[in-house]
Computed example of a mutant assay.
Amino acid sequence: MNGPWTAGAEPQAYPVTRSGDLVHVRQAIRALSQQCGLSLVDQTKMITAASELARNTLIYGGGGTVRAGLVDGAGKRGVASVFEDAGPGIADVEQAMTDGWTSGGGLGLGLSGARRLVDDFHLHTVVGEGTMVTIIKWVR
């Protein structure tokens, strides 16, 4: 399976097809963040970013999948999540990444807010095919 995952530690996949699934994603990210040893502040940042991105997956992507797990890199450990949908994609990434821009009534963070809350943020989108966002929060 592609992704930033720790060798030998497969990520868990969580469907995002209804609003109740967002609770399961937040719970999974909280458990992984605690297991990894993130500070309480960093746990909150990762959970908040994941919540916003899972909501985007549901609302704008029409549903999808979240994969979450532990990662290692350059002598560090962390928590990673990959949010994937087969929705319409993002036509104007620059606008979507603008601070304060929103196309709906979410948490008000948007993609730029989620990016600020994590250490690594990667967005890949193709109009008509979908979007994939990968985030990582590293233990300091």
Score class of each variant (00 low, 15 high):
E129R: 13
S112G: 10
M1K: 12
S81E: 07
G130K: 03
G37A: 06
G78D: 05
G130E: 03
K76G: 06
P11M: 05
W138T: 03
P15L: 07
D42A: 05
G89K: 00
T131L: 09
R67Q: 11
V127C: 08
H124M: 13
L107V: 07
G104C: 14
N2V: 11
A68Q: 01
L32A: 04
A7K: 15
D21S: 06
A13I: 00
G63C: 13
L111Q: 01
L22W: 03
P88D: 02
D21G: 08
V23E: 15
P11N: 05
E129Q: 11
V66L: 00
M1I: 11
G106T: 04
D92N: 09
G62E: 06
G130H: 05
G130V: 05
L107E: 04
V16L: 07
A96T: 06
A80K: 02
W101M: 12
E94I: 13
W101G: 06
I136D: 03
S33Q: 09
E94A: 15
T102L: 13
G37M: 15
S19M: 13
G106A: 05
A50D: 01
R26Y: 11
Q95G: 12
L111K: 03
V41Y: 10
Y14A: 04
D119W: 01
A28I: 08
D99R: 14
A31V: 11
S81H: 03
C36T: 10
A114E: 01
V41A: 15
G62V: 03
K76V: 07
A74Y: 09
L111V: 08
G8V: 03
T6R: 15
E129D: 11
E84L: 14
F83K: 02
K137L: 06
T98G: 09
R26A: 14
M97G: 02
D92W: 03
D42R: 02
Q34P: 04
G104H: 08
L123A: 02
E94C: 08
R26W: 09
W101Y: 15
G113N: 02
M46C: 12
R55H: 14
A91W: 09
W5T: 04
L70T: 08
A86Y: 01
A9D: 12
A49T: 06
S112V: 09
Q12E: 14
L58Q: 02
V127G: 04
L38D: 00
L107D: 02
W5N: 04
A9T: 10
S19A: 09
I47M: 14
